[in-house]
Design a protein around this nucleic acid. Structure first.
Lengths: 111, 111
DNA sequence: ATAATATATAATTGTATACTGATACGTTTA
DNA sequence: TAAACGTATCAGTATACAATTATATATTAT
């Protein structure tokens, strides 16, 4: 694809949405809706393996969706912007509207 | 991953976001912000190959983000819900906040 | 300093998915 | 009906990505 300022902006946005587009990462984000959590707590809540959670957290952190704050040997994560929560809420609303369509979507993943 | 009502809801939401998480699909969605477009018009605006656009449209359609209306030999697509536009706008706002972080993110894709 | 705990990284592997080229299908026009 | 046009599907390939296991790094406690 040709790279212009416009396509670059689109690529950025796609990357942002990609942060939301995995169930593991969504679980992490939703668990952070209630406030900061350290990795062990996130692992406990989400049932992800520790390295797996750590990988997804690195992705979310690099993408700017969450922020890490080290406190001793613990690292606490929190949503980096209130609008991240808004995006999740808005997605719920769209889902309520089109849930049936998404449920029947077999093109992205059969899972 | 254990499948509960909760994880199922999360999987649905992840699938929804996946519709937004590809530059080609985002281009299509943004081009539909201005109103309905048929496939040829979408191909012209986005510079995607026709089969590629058609594939992405099938995904967006199955996921409920766009709706297709056939008119003769043309098929017109439009956003299926106003909130889809809202999600795109909100994403822009988050991006404005965290653009630098996303730009530096090398974990999702090196492109 | 050593052990224990918390988190991050690396290497590997299987699977998902984006793209291309060829082709099929459906609709309109001649 | 045949030809042209618009759209969808299919097969194949290359790449991206998620999960796992093993290991490294960092911090606290003994």
């Amino acid at each position: 694809m040709l790279l212009t300022a416009q396509t670059n902006a689109i690529a950025l946005k796609a990357k942002l949405f990609r942060g939301f587009s995995d169930p593991s990462r969504l679980s992490i984000l939703e668990c952070l809706l209630d406030g900061p959590r350290n990795v062990s707590e996130i692992v406990a809540v989400t049932d992800l393996s520790q390295p797996n959670a750590s990988n997804h957290l690195a992705c979310l952190r690099d993408c700017g969706l969450v922020t890490a704050v080290q406190d001793g040997r613990y690292v606490y994560y929190h949503l980096s912007d209130d609008r991240v929560a808004n995006l999740l809420t808005l997605a719920d609303e769209v889902l309520a509207e089109v849930a049936r369509g998404v449920y029947e979507c077999t093109r992205v993943s059969q899972a």
